[in-house]
Amino acid sequence: MALDKNGIAKRIAQELKNGWYVNLGIGIPTLVANYIPEGIDVEFQSENGILGMGPFPFEGEEDPDLINAGKQTVTLRAGASLFDSATSFAMIRGQHVQLTVLGAMEVSQNGNIANWKIPGKMVKGMGGAMDLVASAENIIVAMMHTNKAGESKILKECTLPLTGVGCVKKVVTEIAVLEIKDGKFHLIERAPGVSVQEIIDKTEGELIVPDSVPEMKI
């Protein structure tokens, strides 16, 4: 069965490594913080100026001066630090942040990503996404494999305005874990109970399928 959003977040959380600083984007990526594997110590960076971001506050303890990049009220962990936006992006651009997890509208087999604009329809802006994808060594994209009309979002070429080029290395969707290498998607894992054929059918980009594709351990 295909994963839900929490399932995708859970699978991505398995990629976290001890000692990493991690930036989580808005949406599914935010949920990753709920599934940090036991024994793994990571710190979350929020590009509006937090290192060591904690969980949401208890009711009545919200502080309007303490929000995450999604404008949600948050808390600080012991040992947290606060800084301005230039310092925050120095951390990102300077590759001091080890992992970036973000959402996407489209991803292509050469590692391009589009997630900020639908011409003539939706213009939200790129926020920090372009800085993040241009500099992060490790980028995992959390997204749905197809759009509401059932069309693949895992493409040969992105059709929407790009956020970054040649930067995505791993994609986790509700049905599969894909790696991008040598200009192709490689099927690494499938969601429990999802057939390889379903993933092939829902992937427009070139997909390399090994003889045996293990199920995700969720």
Partner: peptide, 12 residues
Amino acid sequence: EKRIEQRTVRQK
């Protein structure tokens, strides 16, 4: 006023 855009809390 310091309006909060996305008030998000967790349960005790």
